[in-house]
Write a protein that binds this DNA or RNA. Structure first.
Lengths: 115, 115
DNA sequence: ATCCATTTGGCCCCTATAGGCAAAAATGTT
DNA sequence: AACATTTTTGCCTATAGGGGCCAAATGGAT
């Protein structure tokens, strides 16, 4: 039934069950996650700094995206017990490891815009 | 207001307006698109072959995903005027150019599974 | 005549995701 | 006492994406 005859024109990637490509996409496919990760690649940022850079995102939505990224271990959230509150977001090692992905995505996106 | 002081720990990528990274993600972030692109990277496939490989996807949904990929110029659809119908899907040049992205995604996804 | 195989489309529903709006908390400043 | 600052949350609504189910089209096989 699943007797697959694979040609090998591209690097062989095992992707049969629980595909790592799918898993990766699920983690970074939020509407603003790309931008967030990109901005955090250059530097640690506070909530409002991030908000200003990303631009048209609602604080509500940004918070959600950050929570998800945090839950997936991509960004780390450091809270300082001061008033007014100071919360710094940065990439974890796992998040920083996304740099090649973001770069590949960027290279492709630049040369192949959406129509 | 936007006087940003950028450190340069990573390759500089301009991502300020209409980020290419975002654009790229929007095009490949469907639930099954990763798998579809992956499978088409190795070879041209007919609808049912694709369906069997992807596994648990509904024909309905697979059709939708393929239509979107086609609309974005990532896959090409070749129909043969025979009965029963024969439709072959393959990657366009634009789609084939995604290989580095898929590989980066795969590399990251393999070493950094979701929890 | 009937059934099978292959691919797609239509209609409706369900859930996930995003956005709007405003409050809450804590404290130094005026 | 009243206010500004920074971040997060609650509640509600709008929109998008994915899935179920079934029909259509067509010629060869039974």
């Amino acid at each position: 039934m699943d007797t697959v005859k694979r040609t090998k024109r591209f690097t062989r990637i095992d992707c049969n069950t629980g595909c790592p490509v799918e898993g990766a996409l699920e983690q970074i496919a939020g509407k603003w996650k790309g931008l967030v990760i990109y901005h955090l690649m250059s530097q640690t940022l506070r909530f409002n700094e991030l908000s200003r850079r990303v631009g048209s995102v609602t604080q509500r939505s940004l918070t959600k995206q950050l929570r998800e990224l945090e839950a997936d271990g991509i960004v780390s959230r450091k809270v300082f017990a001061v008033v007014p509150p100071r919360v710094e977001y940065s990439l974890t090692d796992k998040g920083a490891a996304l740099a090649p992905v973001i770069r590949a995505l960027h290279a492709w996106g630049s040369t192949h815009p959406r129509t």
